[in-house]
Design a protein around this nucleic acid. Structure first.
Lengths: 190, 190
DNA sequence: GATACTATGTAGCGACTGCTACAAGGAATC
DNA sequence: GATTCCTTGTAGCAGTCGCTACATAGTATC
């Protein structure tokens, strides 16, 4: 592997950490270069342009998220939707996962704005989410698997969205309340 | 009212429409000025700086959203959470409401990035949402009202987030599937 | 040793950003 | 008629943006 390729890999690794830490807030070429410990000139030597940088870094981040999701909830035994939501919610609101979800919300917004290369990234990651849910979802025949999968993703992403603009304390209560809403036996009653 | 104040109002009105149409994609001072039909020089005559422009415009948009939410689901008869979610979801995924929700997601992301004046705007709008839910939520005593309200907002916002990065067709299926998940009698079974 | 390719620094381009200094026209007031 | 204030245009500032031209040092190849 050439020096260039080695540096490329190292840069991707460092920038993945940078994006998870700061979101899309500091993503000008010069800021990315500084975070990666190289000059902006060299960043554009390792990558053809800024879009390729973000593409590569986001692919790395998505890969890591994918691994963690697979580890947290294996695809062996399919779960009923309420239980799947409950576990996925518990996992994605864990402190170390919140920066993934925050970045994800920012990326979706950037895609909504039409900002390259985020629309393509969102399409890929979203497909990954759908596949992840589909492989873990136990649903009676005749039910709308795609619709249900989308709804489950929506609930998880919604928790993340509210989470990032609220005080820390609300997240667990929100998850608990959601759990009650989904249960066949609804929450603490008199 | 001085010419300046009249123009200010007219500019806010036009920019509210602009933001709902294009999100935060075209919000440089010059782009905002063009959309409002004035020069950038005059925009900064009517407002002290860009943050004040966005503040005023977002307040207008939030006000309009608030009116529509109040009209769509009056606060007379409190609803159980599942029903409230169902109605709110049906309303916010209506075609004419989607641009509100898209803008909302973008604003939350901008706030997450720390970009002024969005954190303050998000806090205000979020408080409005919480109040709206609280005034319409029928919940047994002893239940966590705040947590449940946050969860309801999360579900609605999640639908919006998935909605803006999916094909049109999925939205209604997602809402239907969610309805099944929340029902005491879960969806079409065999 | 000459040549070609890889790797890196310096410097800067043109476009855009938020914002402002300055001047001037017009209306109102003294 | 002179002065002052409200309104508006012109021009441009300093900074950042993504990106690139150019030079150079080192290394590999012939």
């Amino acid at each position: 592997m050439s020096i260039r390729d080695e540096q490329r890999e190292a840069v991707i690794e460092r920038l993945a950490e940078h994006l998870l830490e700061h979101g899309l807030a500091r993503t000008s070429l010069r800021q990315l270069a500084a975070a990666a410990g190289v000059s902006d000139r060299m960043l554009l030597y390792y990558f053809t342009d800024k879009a390729e940088v973000l593409d590569a870094v986001m692919a790395r981040v998505a890969g890591e998220l994918s691994v963690r999701l697979a580890q947290a909830i294996p695809d062996g035994a399919p779960l009923p939707p309420a239980e799947l939501i409950r576990r996925a919610a518990a996992f994605t609101t864990r402190p170390e996962m919140r920066r993934f979800m925050r970045l994800w919300v920012e990326v979706v917004a950037a895609a909504a704005r039409g900002e390259a290369p985020f629309p393509a990234i969102v399409a890929q990651v979203m497909a990954g989410f759908r596949h992840w849910v589909d492989a873990r979802l136990d649903l009676p025949q005749g039910a709308d698997r795609e619709g249900t999968a989308a709804a489950i993703i929506a609930v998880i992403d919604g928790l993340a969205l509210v989470d990032i603009c609220s005080e820390d304390e609300i997240a667990s209560r929100m998850a608990a309340a959601l759990s009650c809403l989904l249960a066949d036996q609804p929450g603490p009653r008199d």
